[in-house]
Computed example of a mutant assay.
Amino acid sequence: MSSLALSRRSLLAAAAVAAGRLALPSSLLAQPATNASGRFPICTFVKYLQSLSFDELGQTIAGLGLKGIEATVRNKGQILPEHAEEQLPKLVEALQRHGVEIMIMASSINRVDQPWTEKVLRTAAGLGIKRYRMDYYLYDLNKPVADQLRELKPVVKDLAALNRQLGIQAVYQNHAGTKYVGAGLWDLHELLEGIPKEEIGVAYDIRHASIEGGQTWPVTWNLMQPHLAAVYVKDARWEGRKVQDGPLGWENGVVDPAFFKLLLKSDFNGPISLHVEYLEKGTIEENVTAIRENLVTLRKLLNQTA
């Protein structure tokens, strides 16, 4: 892509941010990217902004009033794993120029014997990145699930040991779906038993927990407290037998606002990652606007009385 096209796209993204800021009440503009108590640093997942240059990304995120991102350093990400040693320092430097940091690094890592695991994690830890999101484990439903969990335990323990050695924390996101390990969260609790959350914790995704658990999400939220390392927020609703993603606070959305009251009452004080998943085919400008609008909703939910 030409530098002219990138510059035009960057200007359009900045214009979208600026237009949105002008439309917001001054009370909201003055708010930092935390709730009123300052407990929760907020970042946003940049999957649909990753075609921006590093500097454009930093400028865009800072324009939204955010201090952090969930970066994509993975297969099909903004940075490929094999290029992390060279490119990740450049991304960190570009973000820092705009007062932005990588709060979570979305990765393709879920075991120590992958080709780039140690190099990526050593590079990230050396740059001060505190946590990375693991890739998912998948069940083979033609085999006993319990046996597969037993086979995964030493894999997870080996990865936890590497994290301890390097001084970086992994987080595993619960993800709704037929074959995902952790979709129901009870299996994830078993898998991580005995592993300190400082080595491998859970990124509790309320959208996925609500899709899989229906009205029982308070049970899995309770269950995950000893493992809790991050919180992911987004929303969806059922359209017949299919799930349709949409904005946080969506009418008839599956995410109960009561979740945020429980979050405020909890002891958790880690990062919240805002995910905007419903504009996969949207432009950069449309996704920037969606992040801005969802961020307003998130801040309102986090300013409820606990």
Rank of each mutant, 00 (worst) to 15 (best):
V233Y: 05
H83D: 15
E190I: 04
A33G: 14
N294I: 05
E280P: 00
S273E: 11
F54P: 01
Y139Q: 09
E93I: 06
N163A: 06
M134H: 08
A5T: 14
F54D: 13
G65V: 03
W186T: 09
L29H: 08
K143E: 12
L88R: 08
Y180L: 07
C43Q: 12
H189F: 03
G240D: 13
G99W: 07
K130W: 00
P25T: 07
Q304D: 02
A30F: 09
L185F: 02
L295Y: 06
T117I: 14
P89S: 04
A30P: 06
H208E: 09
M224F: 07
K157Y: 02
K90R: 15
A146G: 00
F260V: 01
E198T: 15
Y48N: 14
R237V: 00
S37I: 03
A84F: 04
P247G: 02
G65H: 10
D235S: 08
F40L: 05
K300T: 01
T289G: 05
D158Q: 15
Q50N: 12
N142I: 00
L264I: 00
L298S: 07
V255L: 10
Q215I: 11
Y48F: 15
T216A: 13
A183Q: 12
V219C: 02
K261G: 04
Q173S: 06
E70K: 01
G63V: 13
L228Q: 02
L185I: 15
P247A: 15
